[in-house]
Design a protein around this nucleic acid. Sequence first.
RNA 1: GGGCCCGUAGCUCAAUGGAUAGAGCAUCAGCCUUCUAAGCUGAGGGUUAGUGGUUCGACCCCACUCGGGCUCACCA
Length: 542
Amino acid sequence: MKKYILELFAKAANKIEYLKDAPIILDVPKADSHGDIACNVALGLSRALKKNPRQIAEEIIASLDPDANVITKMEIAGPGFINFFFSPGYLARIITEVTEKDSDFGKSDRYKGKKANVEFVSANPTGPLTVGHGRNAVVGDTVANILEWNGCEVDREYYFNNAGRQMRVLGDSVKHRYLELLGEDIKFPEDYYQGEYITDIARGLLDEYGDSLRDEDPEGKFRERAESVIFADIRGTLERLNIRHSVFYNENSLYEEGRIQGLLDLFNERGLSYHKDGAVWLKLSELGNEQDKVIVKSTGEPTYRLPDIAYHVTKYERGYDRIVDLFGSDHAATYPDVLAALKELGYDTEKMKVLIHQFVTILKDGGIVKMSTRKANYITLDELIDWTNPDIVRYYFNNRTINSHLNFDVDLAKKQSDENPVFYLQYAHARICSIIRTVNEQELKASHDHLDLLVRDEEIRLIKKIHQFEEVIAEAGENLDGSKICLYLEELAGLFHRFYTVCRIIGSEKNLAEARLALVAAVKIVLRNGLSVVGLSAPERM
RNA sequence: GGGCCCGUAGCUCAAUGGAUAGAGCAUCAGCCUUCUAAGCUGAGGGUUAGUGGUUCGACCCCACUCGGGCUCACCA
């Protein structure tokens, strides 16, 4: 519909000078009485033209030349809106279009031929994924889906570090528990990993090796086993949410390939780094950031910043057109350093998009749970999935904009799982499946021959809504925001449920029944497609 | 103290600078001999944290104030 009106305006611009550069913003009005599409261009032009907006609107309408079979009415309303009314015949064609495109309906070519890298989760293997990681995981995967629906080829990437201090502490934590299991009276350091899973890993080693690891280096078997067990656990959790990364990028390979040293040399050659107090500093203040930062400690060990930059260089070298990073607000202060360095090195940082999501606050037993992996004071993503189900978890995390804090009331999630809004969407799909099953046993089948019989408000609204899906996906592709898709699906499901209570199929006159069946089949397609973008299942029965 | 995010119905959240600020949950009142009642209909509930400003028009943009989260390492 919008496309059609934009074409009308493009033609009219040949007749009216001021329409040439005017931005044509089209809107779907909230009230049916305001038409199917509204345009406020006259209001915007009024200032520059020093004319009454209603008068401008009149001139514009006079210059538009719509097909009477498509547009039945154009009117000026309120302060100067132009409202367009589409014919039922044009709307009916939407059903046919959806049916023909089927599982491709909603897809766009916006990023056709482009390659994207979406990096998300990227938790180091020091413990199970928590609810906080869950938000990152779900949003990241949905962003990847959205890019795919817009024609992009997408790699889902997980960046991790299995060396360094954290992992040393992890290995030693396991060793301490191991010795403890052997009956030794050891003191478990407070800043070590307190989680129960550490003891489980130690027990596994004890079963397998007995007491032969008493003198084993914590960085040896202990660290190795911890990493493999924890990583398997993380992958298992992600798998439950239907999330699979295609690339696991090990920070260590940056060292092995000499990229860290190479980058260090490059910074040195370009005069971007200097030595002070035994450390190497990057001149970030000269690149527009607040202050210089250490990239190599006086111990000779690089800080995370250096490999981070080297890592992102590989993303450019690997030929991605679009580079998306997703992380929590605790990392918000670090990415400007990476961006500044990349820009200085000549990489097009316009290709990069860093998405920051705010924290998840867990409410349990009436209080806030302060999360800390180290202190083992957290709720794991697995627990959350156990209490609810993967669809609810995905829905919950997708349903909010990433800029907002997310309050997750665990008790409520457990107790009200049956009344979660996600069922509302899935139930709409299941209901349609049920109708189709029932109808298959009768003489009825969907037909597009009499779609003009669909004239009730409940039918018209539903048709207009399924039409909007393409636009919703395109917009999501632009701002990489999956929450709008959830919102759309709720509206679509709501319109369907209302249609369902008022418009019967079985028992209606045959032509009408078959037209309604066609409509309902189209709604099913859009629901299924939409649910798949946000990563939810579309159950046939509930 | 500086930077980023947030503040909307009792609760969780929506609303490209547009027309009467909307959903879900919770509360109350109705609707199942007919395609799934995990549904539908209706009611109550708001000074959009506050004060100014910008303009035809502000929940949205700007300034300040108040309140909350994150962050400002030779930790990642």
